[in-house]
């Protein structure tokens, strides 16, 4: 799949933002006044930047509001609702933290849960796509949630971040392993794609010019470097931030540097999430 920057930015930023919002909502972070404003602002900022980035992915954004209409069946629609609901629901809590209004925390907890639900709905957009076997797996929501929580924890400056960072690394290693076999397990081949028997190869792919499918669904360029990128991203996403946190003795600057490193790692992992995902339509082009 084409690793479109807009979608990578969207899912990483909004994931991290909703993760932070979740921690803020639950009240894991004790802050007040301008500190609270900054913290909540960071959460909102990331989430909104993410959502804006997503709109850049649209070919026809003027209809964007229509995306709310199909919540009954469409995870994208649900995500739209969930994200807006989260942002609206948490607003009073944020105000309360900032201005010290003392709103009941239960309200924040509700919003926090919704924030995680939002991340889940985002993940489900990918998970539901049977045509991309790597995504169509229980691990996709898990990874998205893990990223949200880990990123959120780092941004929230919580010590538990260290545990989460370690857990994320383990999870990624596992998920990559599973993911690499997913296409094969899904059982789709050039034979099922064409219904033909025997050993099949592409003779001519029907057009020598490019098209939308090739650009969007059949992204092959990045895979050569995938192994290298995986290693690098893994280090950036977990061990390195953890090391910085440890070295800094959980100082604020440590969290800041760790968050930045984690963010870069997360972007790389998400890039790989797309670039390494193979759509079954590639079978028609002899390229997965």
């Amino acid at each position: 799949m084409h690793p479109a920057p807009s979608v990578i930015l969207f899912s990483v930023f909004s994931g991290m933002g909703f993760g932070l919002l979740a921690f803020l909502g639950f009240g894991f972070v004790q802050a007040a006044g301008w500190i609270a404003f900054l913290w909540w602002g960071l959460g909102y900022g990331l989430a909104v930047i993410g959502l804006l980035a997503a709109s850049f992915h649209l070919g026809n954004p003027k209809n964007a509001l229509k995306a709310f209409s199909q919540w009954r069946t469409s995870w994208l629609s649900r995500e739209a609702w969930a994200s807006v609901a989260t942002l609206l629901l948490l607003a009073p809590m944020a105000l309360s933290d900032w201005l010290g209004l003392g709103l009941w925390r239960g309200f924040g907890c509700l919003g926090a849960v919704l924030a995680l639900v939002t991340v889940f709905t985002t993940a489900m957009i990918y998970t539901q796509i049977k045509a991309v076997p790597r995504w169509h797996h229980w691990s996709t929501p898990l990874v998205f949630l893990a990223f949200a929580l880990t990123g959120g924890a780092v941004l929230a400056g919580l010590a538990v971040a260290q545990v989460l960072l370690a857990g994320l690394v383990a999870l990624l290693l596992l998920v990559w392993r599973i993911g690499d076999g997913q296409f094969a397990r899904a059982g789709q081949s050039m034979n099922t794609a064409t219904g033909l028997q025997g050993e099949i190869s592409v003779f001519e792919r029907g057009h020598t010019a490019g098209n939308y499918l090739l650009r969007e669904m059949i992204y092959v360029v990045g895979r050569k470097h995938a192994a290298k990128l995986r290693g690098l991203s893994l280090v950036l996403v977990g061990p390195l931030p953890a090391l910085v946190l440890a070295l800094s003795g959980l100082a604020v600057w440590g969290f800041a540097v760790a968050a930045l490193l984690h963010l870069i790692g997360a972007l790389m992992v998400r890039w790989l999430f797309f670039a390494q995902a193979e759509h079954v339509v590639g079978l028609y082009y002899g390229a997965r």
């Binding site: 992915h57 954004p61 209809n63 994208l76 539901q128 049977k130 045509a131 939308y212 499918l213 339509v281």
Partner: peptide, 20 residues
Amino acid sequence: DACIGCGLCAWACPYGAREL
């Protein structure tokens, strides 16, 4: 008239039958 061009349907189609 209602499409936002999100491309999700093309992802969902296993057969490459949709082009944005």
